[in-house]
Nucleic acid binder design. Sequence first.
DNA 1: CGAAATTAGTTTCAAATGAAACTAAGTCAA
DNA 2: TTGACTTAGTTTCATTTGAAACTAATTTCG
Lengths: 161, 161
Amino acid sequence: MAENGKQTDLRLEDFLPYRLSVLSSRVSASLAEIYRERFGILIPEWRVLANLDRFAPLSAAALAQYSSLDKVQVSRTISRMVKAGLITRQTDPDDQRAVILRLSERGQKLFDQITPLALAWEAEFLCDLDPQEIALLDDLLARLEKKADQISLSGKGRNIA
Amino acid sequence: MAENGKQTDLRLEDFLPYRLSVLSSRVSASLAEIYRERFGILIPEWRVLANLDRFAPLSAAALAQYSSLDKVQVSRTISRMVKAGLITRQTDPDDQRAVILRLSERGQKLFDQITPLALAWEAEFLCDLDPQEIALLDDLLARLEKKADQISLSGKGRNIA
DNA sequence: CGAAATTAGTTTCAAATGAAACTAAGTCAA
DNA sequence: TTGACTTAGTTTCATTTGAAACTAATTTCG
């Protein structure tokens, strides 16, 4: 974040990639603690719950897409969640390679319990910003997300998960 | 990011912790590729270079503080960098437990080479925002960083790295 | 002083990660 | 068809990670 126009030194704490990394890590760590302590799940489980709540039935590949997890993570996460009775996994009759994933009743209930806490955490996190500032942040992030997509894509054919 | 006031559903792609995590991952992956391909170093190395450039001489503990790395990461990173001839590590004569870390000439030269590319990457990343928007983003992030510190600290006595 | 507690940094060990290999199923084209 | 190619998801294996244990040095205070 070049506060001044031509910056010759580099202050790491002003460098946007560093700031995003530190901020994101702290935010994730704080939320992960809630998910784990109160509900016994990890962040990938949370992402799966949220996406199946909205989009089920979903294949593992579609779930990976929606949740920004790679296919190995998805495979392991759904195995854990099936074992824990949070989701159901059945073979797709139209394509025996694929699985059809849905929330179980237990998974739905868990998601419904976590969601208010997650939203409350977010609200608390944003409580010093007024609605206009939140809308601004939303817009700025959306534009940076778009830019990051461009940059990622230009970085050869890597799949960014 | 509750665009609407009382949100009953949860769209993961609007959930700020998720957005930060995905954005940060992509940004870090893109930069890490530059560091690795063109200079053969990892992100922890980059953080060490940047902090020693500004603050050397530094102990490992101080470096951990400045770079938001935990002490194990710092220990391993400085070992790699000493081996690669990028930094020097000497025992502090005033405290034989502690080390005194400095950039070597080679490390300084490497840092001076990487910095313009890192800043150029950041400039490219931000190129769709005008200076006023960048200042705004800077301010919003600073406030969220402060909030994240509060939340982290309140989460018992965990050391957040 | 000298025993207990603390601190700096390293090492160990068990868990998490992800690239690449793999299995099984489906598609395509000759 | 049927043999080559692609795709879905899982497993393997080597690497990365970080908490906890450890070593060595310093500080505290009885």
